[in-house]
Design a protein around this nucleic acid. Structure first.
Lengths: 345, 345
DNA sequence: AATTAGCACTCCCATCACACGAGTGATAAA
DNA sequence: TTTATCACTCGTGTGATGGGAGTGCTAATT
């Protein structure tokens, strides 16, 4: 993409239009700009600038005699070139950090908190996926008889995640045999990844082998699944924004917010990049996302676990603030999880 | 409440008004009734009946020259006295049952499926809570060293539910000591409830005792928590209904759908009663639920586990069908869980 | 007493006309 | 390149108008 060349003043004008529009949700005209901001030029000049910015595809009118509003391209230019790098105010940061430290050692709690915090700090609705292991490593397994013919396989992964799987048997099995099988397997497969496992399983037969296969299956599954659990928060609030006054628009954002498939599609894109990603009106690559923007980030521990975190809201969104919030929460989560999953293993 | 006395024909008229209005979302007038349904009387007579039903508080006009629409009271009367007892068509029932049997032994899957099925079979958005144990019983515990000073406590309840809790220690502890502690505890507390536990813990000291206390705390927590996880499905679809064309109304239903607090408040009411409960416009007992109805049911195994399941939708809802769907899915869940948690223990 | 026909009345809704005003675009001068 | 000026556009708000669906009432009928 060739970098668009704009005079300083025109950049300034664009910045003002976006800022005003984000704040008031009203088209902004040349006069009000000239009046409110002292650019040292008259309204007529600004009018010319506005026309130029419109020609460049950064602004539009809703109709002839209305002020200008930013296009999706306008927002993109703003985010890429004009936006002030905004961190959350330090007071707010401290409050959030404090809350996180309250919820000790509970990933589930952290993610709930993350969405709550994000929804509050942005104008959007927040969502987060549970973390997914990049390569799962078995730490320990346990077989527990639940009923005569029902056995619960409990799998502890190196990350501390628990997986459970119910096994239904043809005929009853004694707890001693369960213990024997689990002991044998533990010795062999503790620390193994999905890649190591098939080889190690070869020496086993019968029930023990079956359990081993199930472990493998569960392991693979846990590496695949990226939206095992999705945390959401703040949909009701974002619907109060004026752009969601009419029906179709509401359904659109609710769908984006609810659908798991979208997250699947986006996941890989986000994972490749370490910083916060902004996706305005679907960037042409995703379906019906007119007037909707996403601000997303990866979180986790590199090469170990990672998940998705972010905000979905109207295109008319305070990007600076939102990006700052998402970035801060992601950083915080990174810290917390680093501490948990830590250096060893 | 004194049972309202209505002539056969008036009941019939009320039934028709509700049926037509539910179908078309349009006020229905005396003439269209006389025309479409052969009641053997003229429009004028029906007009009198409509006036009488309005006086009785079962119908209203939006304005003088419009047809009638049901009030919340009208719907209540309909549900209580007039509604045909409708089960889901048997073909649909079979399909649903089949889907449930596909998702073998996975409560999580069942509940996801339940909400998906309910959302499809009703005009509403479906929600379900994860099951909660009435009295949790410890089946087994396991202590697993994750890092030097981090130990994962894995608790298997008699129901097969897993609870995990991370313990952070002051100083490192050896796996042998962990094993010793867990073995000691397992012998003593296996099968114990929260009520039994304090007594049994008395003989322990030090680390073992600490773990025991933690088990107790976790147990109590799991009995309290009723909305550990809430499954939701189909919000986007219900927003397509004409009553949600305007803003405030949308926010209202989204709030009802999202809020956990409401579920907490309703929980006890629903649990007392075994059949499907219909709650129209909050029944005067709950906050801002204008024009919103809930159709809810308990599910689970009596005296062991139970959860909440149901639909939230517009007041203008096909109650017969919705109730049938909720009832069927609840029954199905009951069956499945009965099989899982079963007769023993 | 219940039902019916007739009729005036009410009130929503769609349509049109009109004026207002914010904001533009163009032109010509500085 | 910037500015002042001015005609033009078009959404918005207001008020008038007519049609129509549906009611409520009254008086006649069964």
């Amino acid at each position: 993409m060739t970098e668009l060349q704009l005079s300083q003043r025109r950049k300034q004008v664009l910045r003002i239009v976006i800022q005003e529009y984000v704040e008031n949700a009203q088209p902004v005209g040349s006069q009000s700009i000239a009046q409110k901001y002292d650019l040292g030029v008259s309204a007529a000049t600004i009018r010319n600038d506005l026309a130029a910015l419109e020609k460049a595809g950064l602004l539009t009118h809703p109709h002839t005699s209305a002020g200008r509003i930013p296009t999706d391209g306008g927002y993109r230019y703003f985010v890429a070139n004009l936006m002030a790098h905004t961190d959350l105010p330090s007071q707010e940061r401290h409050m959030i950090r404090h809350q996180f430290h309250q919820a000790r050692q509970e990933i589930d709690q952290w993610l709930r908190l993350s969405t709550a915090v994000l929804a509050k700090a942005s104008t959007g609705a927040a969502l987060a996926t549970s973390p997914r292991s990049i390569t799962s490593r078995v730490k320990h397994l346990e077989l527990i008889g639940i009923q005569d013919t029902a056995v619960l396989l409990v799998l502890v992964l190196a990350t501390g995640t628990l997986k459970q799987q119910l096994i239904t048997l043809e005929q009853p099995i004694f707890q001693e045999e369960l213990s024997r099988a689990s002991n044998q397997l533990n010795v062999e497969i503790s620390g193994a990844t999905a890649a190591d496992l098939p080889e190690k399983l070869e020496e086993f037969t019968g029930f023990t082998r079956e359990v081993g296969e199930l472990v493998l299956k569960t392991l693979l599954q846990s590496e695949e699944q990226i939206t095992e659990r999705v945390y959401r928060h703040g949909l009701a609030e974002v619907l109060a924004e004026p752009e969601f006054a009419d029906g179709p628009q509401v359904r659109r954002i609710v769908q984006v917010f609810e659908q798991r498939t979208l997250l699947h599609e986006i996941y890989d894109d986000i994972m490749e990049l370490s910083d916060v990603q902004v996706m305005i009106a679907g960037e042409g690559r995703f379906g019906d996302m007119q007037d909707i923007s996403l601000v997303l980030s990866r979180y986790g521990v590199p090469d170990r676990v990672s998940g998705l975190l972010g905000v979905v809201g109207p295109m008319r969104m305070p990007y600076g603030r939102t990006i700052g919030a998402v970035r801060y929460v992601a950083t915080l989560l990174n810290e917390m999880m680093h501490q948990l999953y830590g250096q060893n293993h």
